[in-house]
Write a protein that binds this DNA or RNA. Structure first.
Lengths: 224, 224
DNA sequence: ATGTAAAGTGAGTAATCACTCACAATTTGA
DNA sequence: TCAAATTGTGAGTGATTACTCACTTTACAT
């Protein structure tokens, strides 16, 4: 019940954007709940209103349409997730560091983003579900991930390849290989089996280990 | 237009289950289309009927509810995907084969399942989307994947660990690491960017390479 | 205290929804 | 050939939907 306030702060960081009225926060909180539970299309504005202890008209006072409400929820989440990747240090850190420390660096980044997702697990579900159907969300995804995060990865990969520490797969393939096990863990951890007794630290370490070894050259057969 | 017949055969293999009337096939074909396009909840039975050139009542003659129609589509797809894993040979093949050939064996299996998914790409989308919301589909998933496929993997992993060829992560973690890059590829290949000029053979080879090396012991740090 | 703008309300609305049913057309079996 | 069973039809139905709007309440500056 308490960590929702932090989540809402993430949704609408107090630094930017106008501050929200209490009812507005209740609406956002209820909408995240309902959207995550039933999916956007199966959620009714009347249920969101009643769960937020608010009249249905109040929702439409602040959000012109139901889809506007969805976007108001998802957009800040995506931007919030991407924030660390905007740091100029990101790429520099990756290729300045000696290869044997790279694993630790990746771990730090991933653990940080893991905590962010952990605090916003329902948002992860909403994004993964609705990205497929709403072009507005796709555009936002394109803006944040493909235009900001992916190029950072590509630059880092470029330097790793130069050092010869890494297999020579195409960049999109390598990025997919880096992200797939991470997303696979996040989805299992928060969506499929959130109630299992997870040792997050261990799982993340093993996931990073898996990625690094999977991308490393050689391992026994030193053919090419 | 033509490969739909094969797909429908996969949906309702002629060996079992009663044969379908032409209208019934049109309904299934249209339903797959519409469900994949707009998602189950946003699809209307009236649109499915009109796209199938069928009266709306005809749908409900064969499927009591809209959800019954969804299940009639998804269930055979899941069963069809699992078929090769039911083969008794599966595990035996994996641990009888010398480790250096294991990669080839995995490739063969994965390429085979890849072709199956390729012929039923819209079904993949429907399953991934709707699994989250319909307990009937979760049950079917449980039945097929968790009770049939996962144990086969566990047995194979047990023998691989015995041979000492593989890191000692928990079985669920290892299964996740095997499946994540494959699912990541399938999702990218068929849902996110199906129109890219894919070299499927190469991508699959690299994905298997990535998995095998990621799970292999050692590579530099032979600490534990 | 008072005027004004913003926030909140909930009954009302037209559209759409999944589903029904009385009936028509077609297929089947003997 | 003909009756019975199966398959197909589409107008009709009650429920639910996102959204509106005339109105009330609250917040705030002077």
């Amino acid at each position: 019940m308490k960590e929702f306030e932090e989540m809402l702060h993430t949704l609408h960081p107090p630094s930017e954007e106008k501050k929200l009225t209490p009812k507005q926060e209740q609406i956002l909180k209820a909408a995240v709940e309902v959207f995550a539970e039933k999916g956007y299309a199966s959620s009714s504005t009347s249920e969101i209103a009643s769960r937020a202890n608010v009249a249905e008209g109040t929702i439409f006072r602040h959000y012109k349409t139901k889809k506007d409400l969805l976007i108001a929820i998802v957009k800040p989440f995506m931007r919030g997730f991407a924030v660390p990747f905007f740091a100029a240090r990101f790429v520099q850190d990756v290729f300045d560091v000696p290869p044997e420390k790279l694993e630790d660096l990746l771990k730090t980044l991933i653990k940080n983003r893991f905590e962010f997702v952990k605090e916003n697990a329902p948002l992860l579900k909403i994004v993964l579900q609705e990205l497929a159907f709403h072009s507005e969300l796709k555009d936002q995804f394109q803006e944040v991930f493909i235009q900001e995060i992916f190029p950072k990865f590509e630059e880092a990969i470029y330097h790793l390849k130069e050092k010869g520490a890494v297999v020579d797969f195409p960049n999109p393939t390598m990025i997919r290989m880096i992200m797939s096990p991470i997303i696979g863990f996040l989805v299992t951890r928060f969506l499929i089996a959130p109630d299992l007794p997870w040792d997050d630290e261990k799982e993340l370490d093993q996931t990073v280990h898996f990625i690094m070894h999977g991308l490393s050259k050689g391992t026994g057969s030193s053919s090419d």
